[in-house]
Simulated assay, not measured.
Amino acid sequence: MSEKTKTIMLCCAAGMSTSMLVTRMQKAASEKGIDAKIFACPAAEVDEKLEQENINSILLGPQVRYLLDNIKKKVADKPIKVDVIDMQAYGMMNGAKVLEQGLKLSN
């Protein structure tokens, strides 16, 4: 991966509900020629992923929005932006819109 690669982590309760969204985001990135690494992880693995990955932005599934402040504190000393996935885009599994949200955060 190049330095231009954007790494977006999606975080949800168990990592399952966001996996389909990740697939759609990857497809949207590919169609737009965007170099992005997108993956999902359960909330319980956030600390581990922060150690292993060079993450640019973290998007939380609406079901774990209560973790927003906690995760923002964990990354306060890192150049990582955190937000909650737009609920409508999440519900519609709109990969392109969620990709756009993650890229805006990471710029």
Rank of each mutant, 00 (worst) to 15 (best):
M1G: 13
E3M: 10
K4N: 10
T5M: 08
T5W: 04
K6C: 13
T7N: 05
M9D: 08
L10F: 09
C11I: 15
C12G: 04
A13P: 02
A14H: 13
A14F: 08
G15L: 06
M16Y: 02
S17W: 03
T18P: 05
S19D: 02
M20L: 11
M20C: 11
M20P: 09
L21F: 07
L21I: 05
V22M: 09
R24K: 15
R24I: 06
Q26Y: 08
K27D: 15
K27V: 15
A28Q: 02
A29H: 02
A29W: 02
S30A: 14
S30Y: 12
K32E: 13
G33F: 11
G33E: 11
G33C: 06
D35F: 08
A36K: 00
A36D: 01
I38D: 07
I38K: 05
I38Y: 00
I38G: 09
F39W: 02
F39S: 12
F39Q: 09
A40K: 00
A40L: 05
C41E: 13
C41H: 10
C41A: 15
C41F: 04
A43F: 15
A44S: 15
A44N: 14
E45M: 15
E48K: 11
E48C: 12
E48Y: 12
E48L: 15
K49D: 04
E51W: 14
Q52S: 05
Q52W: 01
E53L: 12
E53D: 13
N54T: 07
N54A: 15
I55W: 00
N56G: 15
S57M: 02
L59K: 06
L60T: 07
P62F: 01
P62E: 10
Q63D: 06
V64R: 04
V64I: 14
V64E: 00
V64Y: 00
R65T: 07
L67G: 01
D69R: 07
N70Q: 15
N70M: 08
I71S: 06
I71N: 03
I71W: 07
K72W: 06
K73N: 14
K73G: 06
V75F: 05
V75E: 04
A76F: 00
A76Q: 14
K78T: 05
P79C: 02
I80N: 09
I80H: 08
I80L: 11
K81L: 11
V82C: 03
V82T: 01
V84Q: 01
V84I: 14
I85Q: 07
M87V: 14
Y90E: 03
Y90L: 05
Y90K: 09
G91L: 07
G91Q: 14
G91D: 02
M92P: 03
M92Y: 09
M93H: 03
G95Q: 02
G95S: 04
G95P: 05
A96H: 01
K97C: 00
K97Q: 08
V98P: 01
L99T: 09
L99R: 04
L99S: 06
G102Y: 06
L103T: 03
K104R: 12
S106T: 04
N107E: 13
